[in-house]
């Protein structure tokens, strides 16, 4: 019986570690993107890209480790399915952070100065959505009855992000920005906006996991 709970404790520790690494990845992305908007592509951004890639890989490794551990006699099948589904869905956000920084560094995308304030708003909005969904995860792992209050703001942030994205893309296409740059910028906007889209999907999943445990 003690082995029974020891495995559960190990899984719980790994999950906590996974979310710590995911936070680290997104925080590094936030800082890197801010410095990019301020200074453009510089060594600092390239270093951050390496760090983000390393911590995103660590998050992936942890997720695989959790998956393996869960199938070795710990947790009920539905808990396993819910937690693995949550991690899989959540993991798209660190992946996006890595994709966006890599995209900027490799494609050398430059944000024209007049669009930087809106890019900054877009970033803040998506990081807010991320932090809100993290709050929802913490509540799910502590007291699922309180999940609802943390889920609603994610939805609001996702809608706000959509509005910023649409306005920003419209103003870029209305400007005299080079056509190929417009396409790159639009792609960059959409990838950043994907963070809040994913946050919303994770939030819905969290809500369902909590509801499933109400009898």
């Amino acid at each position: 019986m003690s082995l029974f709970f020891k495995r559960e404790k190990e899984v719980r520790q790994l999950i906590d570690e996974y979310f710590r690494v995911a936070d680290e990845t997104l925080d590094a992305f936030d800082a890197a993107f801010k410095s990019y908007l301020k200074d453009g592509i510089c060594d600092k951004l390239r270093e951050a890209d390496g760090r983000i890639h390393a911590s995103e890989s660590r998050a992936d490794d942890l997720r695989v480790e959790i998956e393996k551990m869960m199938y070795s006699h710990s947790l009920l099948p539905e808990s396993r399915g819910d937690i693995l589904g949550l991690l899989e869905s959540f993991d798209k956000m660190p992946n996006l952070a890595e994709t966006v920084t890599f995209m900027i560094v490799t494609q050398k995308i430059q944000v024209p100065p007049q669009f930087r304030p809106d890019f900054s708003r877009l970033l803040d909005c998506n990081m807010d959505a991320y932090h809100q969904v993290r709050e929802a995860v913490d509540r799910l792992l502590a007291n699922p009855d309180t999940v609802g209050a943390a889920v609603k703001p994610v939805d609001e942030k996702e809608s706000e992000s959509d509005r910023i994205e649409r306005a920003l893309i419209t103003s870029i296409y209305d400007s005299d920005t080079d056509k190929s740059d417009r396409i790159l910028l639009r792609e960059l906007i959409e990838r950043v906006g994907d963070i809040s889209d994913n946050a919303e999907r994770v939030a819905y999943r969290i809500e369902i996991i909590a509801l499933k445990r109400r009898i």
Binding site: E8, L141, A142, P144
Partner: peptide, 8 residues
């Protein structure tokens, strides 16, 4: 009001 692990 159990969390996922306590419920499990």
């Amino acid at each position: 009001a159990l969390n996922v692990f306590q419920y499990d």
